[in-house]
Amino acid sequence: MTEQEATETSLVHTATWHTSSYSAERGECVEVSEGPVTGVRDTKHRELGALFFTADEWHAFLSTTRRDLL
């Protein structure tokens, strides 16, 4: 296991996760954790782990998503 994988595994278990306000009403729930990196996981398949993003990557994702919604 690489150092990054070990860090991400630790974050999955120690992070405070909350359900995205954009997904709760549709039943397609996504959880997000905020901290040194942003984690995203599927609430229905938590055992599959999570994706992690640096602050710059997360900002780019949100900016693109907001632009696409307009």
Rank of each mutant, 00 (worst) to 15 (best):
H45W: 00
R46F: 05
T43H: 00
S63R: 02
W17H: 09
T19G: 00
D68F: 09
H59K: 12
D68N: 12
R66W: 15
A24V: 13
R41L: 13
E5P: 08
E5G: 06
V32T: 08
P36E: 12
Y22P: 09
H13G: 11
T64K: 10
F53K: 01
D42A: 07
A60M: 03
V12H: 08
R46T: 12
W58C: 03
S23F: 11
E8C: 06
G49P: 08
H45L: 10
V32Y: 10
C29S: 12
T43G: 06
V30H: 02
G49H: 02
R67L: 09
D42S: 07
E47C: 05
E3H: 06
L62Q: 13
V30L: 07
A15L: 03
A50C: 00
E25R: 10
L70R: 12
A60D: 10
L51F: 00
R67G: 05
E25Q: 12
T9C: 11
W17N: 02
Q4F: 07
G27F: 12
H45P: 00
A50W: 02
V32K: 02
S10G: 10
A60N: 11
L48D: 14
E25L: 14
T16C: 01
A24G: 07
C29W: 07
E31T: 11
F53W: 14
S33P: 05
Q4I: 14
E34Y: 05
E47R: 03
V30D: 04
S23E: 00
S20M: 10
S10L: 12
E8V: 00
S10H: 13
S23G: 09
G39Q: 03
